Amino acid sequence: MRIILGVILVFVVSGEEETTHVNGFLGESVLLPCNCTDKEEFEWQMEFPKLQSVYNKTTSEFDGRYQGRAKISENNNCSILLTNITASDQGRYKCILSPGIYERHFVQLHISASYNICQKSDKTNGDIGLKEFHCYVHGRYGEAEIQWNLTGQLLTNSTTTNITYQTNTHSASTGLYHFNSTLITKLNVTSEPTCHVTAKNISTHISHDCVAVSDLLTSVGIPEQKHVIMRYFKLIPIVLVLGFSLVLWRRWKFS
């Protein structure tokens, strides 16, 4: 009977399955905490979104894509210091302690990408009533897009609004991705539309600094966008005037 009870106690899970939430920024370092004693063996796994080994207790080595980017913390011998974090590092991790009482510590790693935004507006063209706005963005995560909003509503291409995007470019010297977008509208509104950035599967941390954006664009040789669409809009009233004049001339000629 004592032997059976001893076997059962080995597999008792200690405590509730509480999760520690940790925030990290793309390209930086983050600590995944797990407290233990020197006598305990441990291993790490990513549990979600994909089950995979992180640290193998048998080989005492990190597995796969964690090699070269992770190490055991010097201050806490069961915690992991993960460096140069990527978007795929986001997820739920599990630290497993043994022998003795079987313990599991869960850590939810949330990844954010930092972006800097500079928004500029051109003077209104009084002749054709167009307003033009430019959005310049740089950040470390390329899977992102610029969106425009007006008073809380998402703007899309329509008969009164034209939005263009420049293909994302990457600078090897800075490691940053650059995004450009231009919005041209005939909407008669008092407030200006604003641009923001959304990243795929991770959250964003936004700052606004036009000086920093302009300096980076100049350093990597990316000019501010000049859009042919503006010329198209300027031709519309000219074509309308010529067409109306032609109709009046034909009526006068054949009357």
Rank of each mutant, 00 (worst) to 15 (best):
I3V: 14
I4N: 08
L5W: 09
L9R: 11
V12S: 11
T20R: 08
N23I: 15
G24M: 04
E28Y: 08
P33N: 04
N35Q: 14
K39S: 14
E41Y: 12
E41G: 12
F42Y: 14
F42D: 07
E43C: 05
W44C: 08
S53E: 06
V54L: 02
S60R: 15
F62R: 06
D63M: 10
G64A: 12
Y66A: 03
E74M: 09
N76C: 06
D89H: 09
Q90H: 04
R92E: 08
Y93F: 06
S98E: 09
G100P: 02
I101E: 10
I101P: 00
V107S: 02
L109F: 03
L109W: 06
S112P: 06
K120Y: 04
G126S: 11
H134F: 09
H134N: 05
Y136I: 07
V137S: 10
V137P: 15
H138P: 00
G142C: 03
E143R: 15
Q147K: 15
Q147R: 15
Q147E: 12
G152Y: 05
L154N: 05
L154R: 08
L155I: 14
I163M: 03
Q166T: 12
H170Q: 12
A172W: 01
S173I: 09
G175R: 10
F179Y: 15
T182M: 13
N188L: 12
T190P: 02
T190Q: 10
T190F: 05
E192P: 02
T194P: 00
C195A: 15
N201G: 00
S203D: 14
T204I: 10
H205E: 14
I206E: 14
H208R: 14
V211C: 01
V213F: 05
S214C: 03
S219M: 06
Q225T: 15
K226G: 04
V228N: 08
M230G: 05
Y232L: 09
Y232C: 11
K234W: 05
L235F: 12
I236K: 09
P237T: 04
L242Q: 03
G243H: 01
F244K: 04
F244G: 03
L248G: 02
R250E: 10
R251S: 06
F254P: 01
